[in-house]
Design a protein around this nucleic acid. Structure first.
Lengths: 152, 152
DNA sequence: CTTGACCTTCCCATGATGGGAAGCCCTATC
DNA sequence: GATAGGGCTTCCCATCATGGGAAGGTCAAG
């Protein structure tokens, strides 16, 4: 029994906050925890292992939905590695698209900032650019959902 | 009068959706629009210019709060260019941090995927990694708020 | 037996955006 | 003149992952 932990201990051991553990239970990502007579949740090693899995997947940016799939595959002894790879590759694509979007913003912003005199005068290429109606400023559609993905 | 437009036209002309125009008005980013007797919002060239400014700033990833500041500076003839630059530089820093976070995720994920056999066997380095308790998987804190920013 | 740290549930907030309902307005067509 | 449609209004809800906080129950140490 000494390997059963309260939610606070499970949180500290797994790196997932108590708030989020309850949340994951509510949305069905993890099963309902055992309870003490007083209603306290109890977690054993297996549950904490799962929570760590979840935290690591979150660190890699996987969505909760993706993690649900990954957990299913993890528990499925007959899984095909390509199924796991597919989930990971899908997420990788999304990350690359996001990175491309952000990098293009960085690029544009760096150019604007480089042109700024950075003094007390009101003249400012940044505002000039933003207010210039002839300026597409990153075109209309960059990055909304799927800007072309080329970087990385 | 022909230069006064309904919200739908203003949306089409500015690239900001009608939904968002109303939202920006509600949160005070833009002033309350003129109205027809029937209560329809009306937008003139100056308002549409402002909406375009907002759209361009959003395309650069500026938050609505930042845009509020930028609009204030834009309308302030006595602004100092360094004040604008400060807002932009702050945002640039946030973008760089975000990019570093995402790029490190991409990097980790690429390594995992590269090790995957991508076939019908259950053996999978991706799951192995996620379930490995000895594995820090991007350490504990990468990117939560401010991972060290080095990339870019 | 009190104190304080922990647990419970429930509600609300974030940020930017969209969906959709109920109802009013305006114009074109029959 | 009546009707159809499309556009406008407001209001509420959903997303996604996360946290804050209140009100109240539980438990261990002093």
């Amino acid at each position: 029994m000494s390997q059963l932990h309260t939610i606070g201990e499970a949180a500290a051991d797994s790196g997932v906050s108590a708030k989020m553990i309850r949340h994951y239970e509510k949305i069905g990502l993890i099963g309902a925890a055992e309870r003490t007579e007083a209603g306290y949740r109890l977690y054993g090693p297996a549950e904490i292992h799962t929570l760590r899995f979840i935290r690591r997947a979150r660190n890699l940016g996987f969505s909760v939905d993706d993690i649900g799939e990954l957990l299913g595959l993890w528990h499925d002894e007959k899984r095909a590695s390509k199924d796991v790879r597919e989930v990971a590759a899908g997420h990788l694509g999304a990350l690359r698209a996001k990175a491309a979007e952000i990098l293009s913003m960085i690029d544009a912003l760096e150019h604007l900032i480089a042109g700024c005199t950075n003094d007390d005068r009101p003249d400012c290429p940044i505002l000039k650019d933003l207010s210039n109606d002839a300026n597409p400023a990153l075109a209309k559609e960059v990055g909304h959902k799927f800007g072309y993905q080329r970087v990385c």
